[in-house]
Amino acid sequence: MKRTVFLIIILLSCLSAFAKAPNLNVEKLFDGRYNSNRHVTVSVYKNNGNYYRGLTIENDPAILKKIAETISKDAPRGFNYSDNINGGSRYISLKIKSNGETIFIGLQMENSGNGFFFIQGKEKAFK
């Protein structure tokens, strides 16, 4: 009986530690800092278990640089990171496993200072 109770306590501790929110650095980019920025279009969508957040940047290399640096901070947590240049665009991609689901993070940067950044995945991955 004592052994059973002790085992339940251990399992409970493991269970509570297993499921947790990812708390990514890139998520903090959607804290409202770009809502009033005329060079940035902010898009947030969550429905039917799907989660999407995106930024479309026009002519602002500084923001693109900031986003690229933020992605690099989360890169150690990912299982797939790539940085490719093709057709004048730079593609930075990061995939992170969280709560059994995959979070896709992408940044497309152009020399003109335009860019497209997104975080996408199942809602369960962000809980």
Binding site: T41, S43, V44, Y45, Y52, G54, T56, S82, N84, N86, Y91, S93, F104, G106, Q108, F116, F118, Q120
Partner: peptide, 24 residues
């Protein structure tokens, strides 16, 4: 308008993922 914009961006994100997969 927000919903329409989100749908467009989600499609763009899917295309991005396919492009990166092809590059890799």
């Amino acid at each position: 308008e927000a919903r329409e914009l989100a749908m467009q961006n989600i499609a763009r994100a899917e295309q991005f993922i396919q492009t990166v997969d092809a590059l890799e």
